[in-house]
Design a protein around this nucleic acid. Sequence first.
DNA 1: CCCGTGATGTCACGCAACGACATCATGTTA
DNA 2: TAACATGATGTCGTTGCGTGACATCACGGG
Lengths: 173, 173
Amino acid sequence: MELYVERGFEQTTVAEIAERAGLTARTFFRYFADKREVLFAGSASLQEALVAALEGAPDDASPMEAVAAALDAAAAFLGEGRELSRQRQAVIGANAELRERELIKMATLSAALAAGLRRRGVTDPDASLAAEAGVVIFRVAFERWVTDSRARELSEIMRESLGQLRALTAASK
Amino acid sequence: MELYVERGFEQTTVAEIAERAGLTARTFFRYFADKREVLFAGSASLQEALVAALEGAPDDASPMEAVAAALDAAAAFLGEGRELSRQRQAVIGANAELRERELIKMATLSAALAAGLRRRGVTDPDASLAAEAGVVIFRVAFERWVTDSRARELSEIMRESLGQLRALTAASK
DNA sequence: CCCGTGATGTCACGCAACGACATCATGTTA
DNA sequence: TAACATGATGTCGTTGCGTGACATCACGGG
């Protein structure tokens, strides 16, 4: 992160990262599949947290209520490190390759949520749609939280965004 | 395409592609930004066709009706080359880097459609949502068309998928 | 004290991607 | 016709990503 923020993603070589970390480039590649993956190291555990929250929702919760539980977990997971999230997002936004990687992480997350919903008994078109909607809300809320100057909580913005989507879909005849 | 189908994307070198085309690797990179871009060469013109159709829709058409016009254009654009689309999709599906590239192309398409809708006077949350919904329908219908053994028309599957999404959103209270 | 085992380093390699420069076929203009 | 500009291609050299093969070294257990 230090190097990516200082001089940008492309201008940073793996050798430099390894040196800063007191390692060899070869060792770097034993921990991260490629230069991009460093920025997404936490995404696996984030995904696990969301899926766990979704599956831990009450049995009688609707699909979107279960998704809302997952979003709460996301807020808890990310809520503390706003400054880190800001830097990270700035780096990713400045580079096309990183945006690609982020998109596929989001797609993976969506698939995992859909699978979790199916395990809860939600059938297929609904499971996928609810999962995709959840990811859309996550992205929108996260973007606002990172951008906004006001110190609102991520969880609050998540809930607000969910409400907005609800209103929008309800209003579409 | 020949080489990617024969031996897969990763096992094909740019030098081989260039040789097959009677060129140098250096020249290849003058036409395509990278090895992946070859498979997405047509995506710019596809996007232009969709946006043109969206903007050419009647003034009194609703946002989703305009999106439907764009989907018709997509069907017209791709409808003839089913076998090519099949091969292409098989290659892309077999490789993570190519899936990433495809995701960012879809995101770009969604942004272009949203911009087109805004030019039609649709305001922001609706424009983005309608555009994203359009891309979802495109993906789902295209996937079915490529996978299905039956010889149904792409345009027909597009319209059917749009109807299903409409029904789903209408049913969600 | 030896012996796995896992983490790291070293070396060598293939290949993607790009900059700089040369070449060659064009069509244009005097 | 000769001179010249232009655009497409080839040639050469370089950087950096990513990987396989092998060596080394620290460690804890027997």
